[in-house]
Amino acid sequence: MADACKYITLVSSDGYEFVVLRDAALVSPTIKGMLRSQFTEAQTGRCTFPEFSGVVLEKVAEYFHYWHRNRDREDVPDMEIPVELCLVLVQAADYFNLDARPSLRDPA
């Protein structure tokens, strides 16, 4: 099964593909839900996001790894965000449920 695979692929609206660490991507409850049931994404390990362009998805993927790398550290430097991407990234954060509120039903 794709479950066992260490990496998953994120696909943007304009066809760019980003291979990210599964554990890193799971910071997003949206992706977590996507991968835990029996939907297509869970079986193929490919998640397509028609709402987001490659530029945005790249930043999202970068954030996943940024979070994964620094999750146990303190005094972490801020991630660099280009000003022109700010608005769309806020949207993406909302979509990916990255608002740091723990999901009500997240299994411990």
Binding site: T30, M34, S37, Q38, F39, E41, C47, T48, P50
Partner: peptide
């Protein structure tokens, strides 16, 4: 469910 795209439904 295996034929359904999660992303599609979520969206």
């Amino acid at each position: 469910a295996s034929q359904l795209s999660f992303e599609n439904l979520y969206r």
